[in-house]
C-alpha cells in the first residue's frame, strides 16, 4: 500500500497506512524482556553479546516486562515457575510477542519423559508465536526465529482488521521448527495461575 509520491521538488513523500507505519516501527524496535531460566538463557546472553549483537536488529534487553514487547522464553519452565511466567506475560503491554526458545520451552525437551516437575511446553500457559528447536538453539537459530517473528510483527494490524488468532504460527510458515499444537491459553479457565504469593 506504500507509495512514493514525487511532489515536484526534490523532496520525496511516502503515503502509507497508519497500521503499516506502526508495524514498521514495532518491527524495528523489538525490546525483549531479559528473562532466562536455564541453559538456553546463556545462549540468549551470548546472542546479546558482541559477536551476534542483536542490538543491530533494534533488540535491546529490558529488565521489566512493562517496557518489553517480546518475551523470549529461554529455558525450562517448571510447574512452580509457570504461574510466574504467566504473570510476567500479563504485565507486558499489548501487542506482545512470545518466542519459545529451546526444546524445554517448546515441549519439555529432555525432561518431558521422566521429570515430574517440568512443564511440558510453555504454550500450556501462554500463547507462543515462534518455536525454535534446539538444546540449546544456536544464536543463529535464535536470530532466525526473531526474523520470522518480525515477519509476523509486520503483518500485525493495530487499528485495522486483526488476524483472528494472531498468535499461532501455522506449521507451514514456520520453516525452522514444527508447531507442536495450538496455543492453549484458553484451557486455563478458572484455575488460572495466581501471582506470586508473598
Amino acid at each position: 500500500m506504500t507509495e512514493i509520491i514525487k511532489p515536484g521538488n526534490d523532496e520525496q513523500v511516502f503515503t502509507t497506512t497508519v497500521d503499516e507505519f506502526l508495524a514498521w516501527g514495532k518491527e524495528n524496535s523489538l525490546f525483549y524482556l531479559l528473562f532466562a531460566t536455564a541453559c538456553c538463557g546463556i545462549e540468549l546472553m551470548q546472542t546479546g553479546g558482541p559477536r551476534y549483537d542483536v542490538d543491530r536488529l533494534g533488540m535491546i534487553p529490558r529488565a521489566t516486562p512493562r517496557q518489553a514487547d517480546l518475551m523470549i522464553i529461554a529455558g525450562t519452565i517448571t510447574h512452580k515457575m509457570a504461574s510466574r511466567v504467566r504473570t510476567l506475560w500479563e504485565q507486558m503491554t499489548e501487542p506482545r510477542w512470545v518466542v519459545s526458545m529451546g526444546s524445554c520451552a517448546n515441549s519439555g525437551g529432555p525432561f518431558s519423559k521422566y521429570s515430574y516437575s517440568v512443564l511440558n511446553g510453555v504454550d500450556k500457559y501462554i500463547p507462543v508465536d515462534v518455536y525454535i528447536p534446539g538444546c540449546p538453539p544456536r544464536p543463529e537459530a535464535l536470530i532466525d526465529g526473531v526474523m520470522a517473528l518480525r515477519e509476523r510483527v509486520r503483518k500485525y494490524r493495530t487499528v485495522g482488521i486483526r488476524d483472528k488468532d494472531p498468535h499461532v504460527v501455522q506449521g507451514a510458515d514456520c520453516a525452522f521448527g514444527s508447531h507442536p499444537g495450538k496455543a492453549s491459553s484458553l484451557e486455563l479457565g478458572a484455575s488460572s495461575p495466581q501471582g506470586p504469593k508473598a
Partner: peptide, 15 residues
C-alpha cells in the same frame, strides 16, 4: 528455591 527444579536426580534413576 525450586523454580528450576527439573528432577534431574529422579531422571538419574530412570535412564
Amino acid at each position: 528455591h525450586g523454580y528450576l527444579h527439573r528432577s534431574i536426580e529422579k531422571i538419574g534413576e530412570c535412564v
